[in-house]
Amino acid sequence: MSIEQMKFAYLKEKGCALTGVRKIPDMGPDDVLVKQLVCNICTTDYGQWLGLREHQGYPMAGGHEGSGIVEAVGSGVKDLKPGDHVAVAYNSCGKCEACRRGHEGQCTSADYKNLTEDGYRGNFGFADYNVRSARNLVKMNPELPPSEAAFLEPLATVCKGISKLRLEPQETVVVIGAGTMGLVNAQAAKAKNCRVIVTELMEKKLQAARDMGFEVIDVSKEDPVEKVKELTDQKGADAVIVAVGNTKANTQAAELVKELDGRILMFAAGYPAPEIELDSNVIHYRRMELIGTFGADMKDFFKAAELLNTGAVDVSKLVEPEKFLLDDIQKAYEHASVPGMYRVSVLLNEE
């Protein structure tokens, strides 16, 4: 079958998501034509739709949490074949210094803000077909639902942070926030055989955390600092993952970790930018670590695929039941941006 055009969705401006048609890129020897099945709407995506991330630029043909099926492969592709189920990693050239060092997430030639010849930014995740480099695709378990396979990228960013946090089995980890990324972090920490405590305010998210088997603190009813101390014999947590982007959570993390050598992972961004209200002497005398994390490298994508493909991380409860067709992209953004939503899937090849 010859595919000459791709139908795609893009953000024209704040609050305005449209669809268009363009010529599909030519395939090179190392490229793969992917029939894209699903792309989930990330916080980054609907944040721009809400007007909170306009620095990303327009028109934005975004979407980076996607999965699909290989339709055709170039002559130089050896590890993928038509019919394989895949999910999308970051674009990377494989040639720059960062890529050669295994830091593909810092690739200097793969900026999503770069304009295509027809004037779009982004990676065309919300499109029915796309041509992608084979090096930026990861094989997925065909039994995994496409909406769950599309969690490859968010879980890869979590794997990056968990690696930097240096978790050890039996450590106590507190995750602030039971949103999508909070619960993905919680599951990844649990897969490291850690004790995981989740703090949250919203009832829907509290219930999701309970359904996943985590110890849960409802901060509308209990002081999280006092409760964590109670649950840890007054010691505090070995590590805290801040999975919500606000000043209170950033500051509270220092009260949740143990007195000496506690580690805090600053996972979440926030717009407008949150602050950290923390005396630097506290960091100094308590030998506290503040660890930043962002993005992922290919080793993190492969680890994420292993966790998803084997069921070690189960994201089935993090996909909203209502899904949207590509033509309904505006409604999809409206739904995804409702407070408390988990991932909303856009179906890319269904009528």
Rank of each mutant, 00 (worst) to 15 (best):
R101A: 04
D223Y: 13
I217V: 04
Q170D: 09
N114D: 10
F124Y: 08
A273I: 10
D327C: 15
D233F: 11
K113N: 09
L155W: 09
Y285R: 11
D238Y: 12
V173N: 06
V86Q: 08
E168M: 13
K221T: 13
E322V: 02
A189S: 12
V338H: 14
L201A: 03
N91C: 06
G236C: 09
K323M: 03
G236K: 05
Q106S: 08
K95Y: 04
A87I: 01
G105V: 14
E320V: 09
A98S: 05
V34Q: 02
S67A: 13
H64A: 02
K81W: 00
A89M: 12
K164I: 07
P169V: 10
A243N: 15
G245V: 07
E350Q: 11
A237T: 12
A304W: 00
V346A: 08
V219H: 01
V242P: 10
L318A: 07
Y342F: 14
P82L: 00
R210S: 12
E117A: 09
Q48M: 12
D128C: 07
L144W: 09
S163V: 02
D233G: 14
E222T: 06
E200C: 10
R101F: 04
V73T: 12
D128L: 05
V344R: 00
L33T: 01
V244N: 11
G15W: 11
L325N: 06
V32W: 00
A268G: 00
S280H: 15
R286C: 07
A332H: 12
A191R: 01
A149P: 15
G236A: 11
V173Y: 04
R132F: 10
E148A: 00
G63M: 02
A273N: 05
G62F: 03
L325S: 00
G270S: 12
L308H: 00
D26T: 13
A149N: 13
E13D: 14
I69H: 08
L307T: 07
I24G: 02
K204V: 13
G15H: 10
V282H: 11
E222A: 03
G57D: 13
Q207S: 12
G51H: 12
A268S: 01
M266W: 15
V313C: 01
A189R: 07
L265A: 09
E97W: 06
L165P: 14
S92N: 10
Q106N: 06
P82V: 00
D300S: 02
Q252C: 14
E226F: 00
